[in-house]
Amino acid sequence: MSMERIKPHFPWITLIVLGTLVGIANPSFFNPAGLVSLTADVVPLFIMALGMTFAIYIGGIDLSVQQLANMVTVIATVYLAQFGIAVAVICIAAGFLIGAISGYATTRLYVPSFVSTLAMGFVALSVAKYLSGQRALYMDAELRNASFGWMFDNTAGVPHELIIAAVLLLLAWFLQTRTSFGRSLKAVGAGELAAVASGLNVNRIKILAFAISGGFAGIAGLIFSVKLSGGDANLANGFLLLAIVAVLVGGTPLTGGVGGVLNTAIGTLIVMVIRAAMVYLEVAATQQQMIFGIILIIAIGLTIDRTKLRIVK
């Protein structure tokens, strides 16, 4: 069997091998209750990575997601009292809008997505700092529980967070595989020029991909904010690298066109297992990003489609 044939199966093989290794070293890893809570912990990261998948699937990247989530934690906390559960709509819309602006800059103004999203990320960060007055804000516990308390309940032992994640995954998967939008995304990612020559509105598709990425980052920020019961311009720091790692180790290469949201689910679980391993090996929290940075470069090196890249700068 050739390397090319095995490549698509790398992510889940990696997940099983890593999971087994960690489980052998530390049998308590397989404790179901522990696994469920570990998985529930990565839900905000997963949702962010899920959105990012759309940006990477078309061959772009979204570096704004972490700052968007930061901004949304502040928005959620500040406006919860005023709007109640409807604050969710504002959060998602804010993420969607900022993502759409990045997409507009990329498609219409020809600003590469890594720059446009980086720049819009700083805009979001600044909004967060302005709204929060650079302080850590806290939600009123009663209001929080009244509007979003349901998020952290259980049904038959399954945390609602996991159900939210599953519903969003299903939605993203449906979008990717069963809609004409999803098909267009694939065409743009795998062969943008052919997509143009087939009469697809490539600009609109790309703008929408970045907007969806922003919208998912908004949801991630909201859940994170409710979970920690507060908002702060730095709350989601550290998520960006992990989200990119989750997408790439899941098997959606930076060149786009292959992989997708199911891959990102696997990628996020791989990140979770690596984190669990690092906790077990007592790797200091300050060193974790170092390891993920190196994993990211290895993952890109393994997955990128070099035939699509003639020059890398």
Partner: peptide
């Protein structure tokens, strides 16, 4: 480069211009 999308299968390529 412009005619077909490599990485997409035959039916996906055929309907790309007429997803509607």
């Amino acid at each position: 480069v412009e005619g077909i999308v490599a990485g997409m299968n035959v039916f996906e390529n055929m309907t790309l211009s007429q997803l509607g």
